[in-house]
Simulated scan of single mutants.
Amino acid sequence: MKSTGNKKLVVFIPAHNEEANIASVIARVPRDFHPKYDVKVIIIDDGSTDRTVEVAKEAGADVVHSFGKNRGLGAAVREGLRQSCLLDADIGLMIDADNEYPPEQIPEVVAPIMDREADYTFGSRFKGSIAGMKLHRRLGNYFFTLLQSVLLRKWIYDGQSGMRGFSREAMECAEIIHDYNYAQVLTLNLLRKGFRLQEVPIAYKVRTQGQSFIKFRQYVNSVIPAIYKEMKRPALRGSSLARNQQVRETSGQQA
């Protein structure tokens, strides 16, 4: 993509074995919705064993970064934030690859960040509409969202959303302390550091193809200890300079 002098929005999509859904998600990402922002789409392939990578490239992804083996959604989101910073994004937008979240609503989800009203945004299913979510998943979402609300002393509607926007500083300062998942620890990390959250209503529809990685017992056994660990850590808002230095050092180690 030729440089236009515009700001940059990087849409990053963590994906593991999503060959049936990834092309549709990429095709639906709005590319020209704002005259001052250029949009790039990058895929963080979490060790897929199907044709996810090939399909993503054919569908028009600008960058595909692949792990050699499956590392977990938390690791993939962490890498998406890192790659967005390396691409010099002004704003990052993460969206799941399962075709459940509406790419058409990306402009709405990032609007509070563009307007400097928020640093961190959710595409909020529970402030919008939900189609097809089973009762046990709905109850799980309620529980973990309530837990975050209690710990942060701030009411949150959708703490497990798979569609999130980030300012540049939020991306630079975000820390995800475990590889399995990211949702709760990332929000606790950023809000405890003083970043402003805003939730934007979206229309959500449960996937019709592919299979979720989430297994309830493994999810609880992984997430609860991570929440405890995150709450025990000091909430220090690191500088952009320090975060960029960490990015460069990590990149050099992996080269």
Rank of each mutant, 00 (worst) to 15 (best):
V63T: 07
I95V: 11
A75C: 10
E79V: 06
G68R: 13
I95Y: 02
G72R: 09
L73N: 08
A59L: 00
V53T: 15
G80S: 06
I91T: 06
V63N: 06
D62I: 00
A76C: 07
D96A: 08
A75Q: 13
R71I: 08
F67T: 12
H65C: 04
V77D: 07
G92C: 02
R51C: 03
Q83S: 05
L87Q: 10
D50H: 05
A76E: 08
V55S: 02
R78K: 15
I91P: 00
A75E: 13
N70S: 12
G72H: 06
D88C: 09
E54K: 14
R71Y: 03
R51V: 03
G80W: 02
V77L: 13
V64Q: 04
K57H: 09
R78E: 14
E54I: 14
L86F: 06
D88I: 04
R78G: 10
V77P: 01
M94S: 08
E58I: 13
D90S: 12
N70P: 03
E79N: 08
S84A: 15
Q83N: 05
L93C: 12
N70G: 08
A75Y: 05
A89V: 08
A59R: 04
V77R: 13
R51Q: 15
F67Y: 11
L87P: 01
A56D: 04
C85V: 15
R51Y: 03
H65K: 13
Q83I: 12
A97E: 06
K57N: 12
D50P: 07
D90W: 07
R82L: 12
L87V: 09
D62V: 04
I95E: 07
V64R: 01
V77S: 04
H65E: 14
R51A: 14
A61F: 00
V64C: 00
K57Q: 13
V64F: 00
L73E: 10
G74I: 10
R82I: 13
V55P: 00
L93D: 02
R51L: 07
K57A: 10
F67Q: 00
K69W: 11
G92F: 02
S84G: 07
R51K: 15
F67N: 12
S84Q: 04
A61T: 11
V63F: 04
D96K: 05
V55M: 02
V53N: 05
A89Y: 02
A76I: 11
A59V: 03
S66N: 06
A56V: 10
D90P: 02
L93N: 03
A56Q: 06
E54W: 07
D96E: 15
C85P: 00
D90R: 10
E58D: 11
E79D: 09
L93T: 05
G92W: 01
G74L: 08
I91V: 14
D90K: 09
K69V: 14
G60F: 01
Q83L: 04
R51E: 15
A61N: 07
I95L: 04
L87H: 02
A75N: 10
F67C: 03
H65N: 12
A75M: 05
E58C: 05
N70Q: 13
Q83M: 08
G60I: 13
A61V: 11
